[in-house]
Write a protein that binds this DNA or RNA. Structure first.
Lengths: 332, 332
DNA sequence: GATGCTGTTGCAACCGATTGCAACCGCGAT
DNA sequence: ATCGCGGTTGCAATCGGTTGCAACAGCATC
């Protein structure tokens, strides 16, 4: 069926070791045998079997990429960047879709069966214990978009969600909103809770404010829309921090149903700055999360763990900034 | 480091074969040894190495999933469905992101190095020759969203794009549009050309019409928007068939810049019926493409090829239908 | 011509599994 | 007691590579 070392060796008239060595970086082969081997290999269309070699080297270059976030458009950007960044460095993403799954056991077992060199948990809605399960099973892991504070055992890359909460609150206050609300993601997401904490921390400095909060069922358009519709049925606030752009866009849709003009009647500030937020019809004021840097840093960490698996865990936290567009009223 | 057959065999006091057999479906092992082995395996936390066994069995259960479409939100749905459907059947998606690549050679080599059991090319903007390159290299392949007519050598799953073009044209005509246009995807995409062909075929039956066409640079929001802005600078048509929902949404954004009301002033019909098209703020009249069925059928074909690699190639084409929303004027 | 050195080569064991084959076991039938 | 049988078991070869080790080739030096 497929061409193996042995075939090439036979055609080139050398031993199998010689062939193996011409295909491994830095091995000792003379120019003469190398060229003989290369000629034979080209003739047969040989390319080495990565899985067979992984047996002896212990390296597969497979990286588990785990997420449960297939309903937030930002993840199209995330997957694009992850897959490209990994493959640029000779690593191969093996995807695990956790949409229906919450327990790590299955994913851990599966990725160990495929001997992945490392795993990336790309989600803020999976608990820190999830990433830790990989660590405990001996799989190097980085938790992208994870919470840094309470998981000192795995690498974490992301943003300071508490600070983002504060930032959003300050922004609403600076624009004169006094009745303000937090519309967060699902309660069991660390990101939703951390943003909430920062938001509250900041607003509690001002006792005269009227503050409310609620949590959507998911980071999705539908959940954001449903939650905002619920809020509009009662007495809504003047300004909202929505814990994610897709929630914001759902909320904007609800506002539009009621003929409410964002930025004019009710203010909305999101978080992420995904491509769609720049669309003229959306024009969402939001907190920019530096996705590209986060993903590059995550893959950097993966590579460093491949060199040194016992590397001391580290948090790489990137600063965010407000992007001014049309859904908050101007600063006075 | 990790637990192997040998360790389990030693602890259970049996041969390695016995251990192997208890983990392979339908092998002959007595209840007694099986339970001894299972006890030992559980104690050591053993799980078999899928890659090592692939060496002898010739099956990896790895499926290459190849795409270049990371800027069209429909692909979030596509990836979600593909990854879930594959893993439900015990197959593992190995992603290849072709954003910067057009030649198949690299992907083919890479996927052969990882001994994938099959490959899925999920893109309508890659030429039929791309999928064929896998076939020629001995990798079973299905081309999802591919063109059926001219590639009898590989399995194709998708829709009849020519018929969709006709359908869109008929729909515009039925609503009384006489100056109509096709705003398609990139010229080198078979889907863009086939939809164009069907569209023209239908409108040419009516010599009194005023028909125009143009092609966007990509299936993306920005490309659709830019193209529509260009059209608006001259004399635009009354009704457009945009060759994809994301192009439509870009076009709608351009219309909104000019204060043009879709459905009232200018009609737009898209193709795909992605989640976003249902959003109230978008409310796009479009042709529904049955993504779920297409993906299920693709994975079905993959499984059938695993059983019979020389299976005669087949096209599975699913019918589409118009979803009426707000961007075309009502039928008279 | 013997010596030593460096660089190249092949042998053989090994990575973690699977599997054909032959040996073996217990057991009922003769 | 012998035989035959179906079911279980272990041996050893194999899958496609890698790699430590020892042998060796070529060359310069003494």
């Amino acid at each position: 069926m497929s061409v193996t070392l042995k075939d090439v060796a036979a055609l080139a008239g050398v031993s199998r070791s010689a062939v193996s060595r011409t295909f491994t970086e830095g091995a000792s082969v003379s120019a003469k045998t190398r060229s003989k081997v290369e000629k034979a290999a080209a003739e047969l269309g040989y390319s080495p079997n990565a899985l067979a070699s992984s047996l002896t080297t212990g390296r597969t270059k497979l990286i588990g990429l785990i997420s449960n976030n297939f309903h937030n458009p930002i993840f199209l950007e995330v997957f694009d960047l992850f897959t490209r960044t990994l493959q640029e460095r000779g690593l191969r993403p093996l995807i695990v879709n956790l949409t229906d799954e919450v327990q790590p056991a299955n994913s851990v077992r599966m990725l160990r069966q495929y001997s992945v060199d490392a795993a990336i948990v790309a989600s803020s809605t999976l608990p820190p214990s999830f990433a830790k399960a990989f660590h405990d099973a001996g799989v190097p892991v980085v938790h992208t978009f994870g919470r840094s504070a309470t998981s000192p055992e795995v690498h974490v890359v992301g943003i300071d969600n508490v600070e983002c909460g504060r930032m959003a609150a300050r922004e609403l206050l600076a624009r004169g909103y006094r009745r303000i609300g937090y519309l967060g993601g699902p309660k069991d997401a660390t990101s939703a809770m951390d943003r909430y904490r920062g938001f509250m921390e900041e607003v509690e400095k001002h006792p005269d404010l009227n503050v409310s909060h609620s949590f959507a069922g998911a980071y999705s358009f539908e959940a954001g829309r449903a939650e905002m519709l619920r809020l509009l049925a009662d007495t809504p606030a003047e300004g909202y921090f929505c814990g994610d752009d897709i929630l914001s866009i759902g909320a904007l849709s609800a506002l539009s149903d009621h003929g409410i003009k964002p930025g004019h009647d009710i203010g909305i500030i999101g978080l992420n700055d995904m491509e769609m937020s720049r669309w003229e019809s959306v024009d969402l004021t939001t907190i920019h999360q530096p996705i590209k840097q986060i993903i590059t840093a995550s893959v950097d960490l993966v590579e460093e763990m491949l060199k040194d698996p016992d590397r001391y865990p580290e948090a790489r936290i990137f600063p965010c900034r407000v992007i001014e567009r049309g859904t908050l009223r101007p600063r006075p």
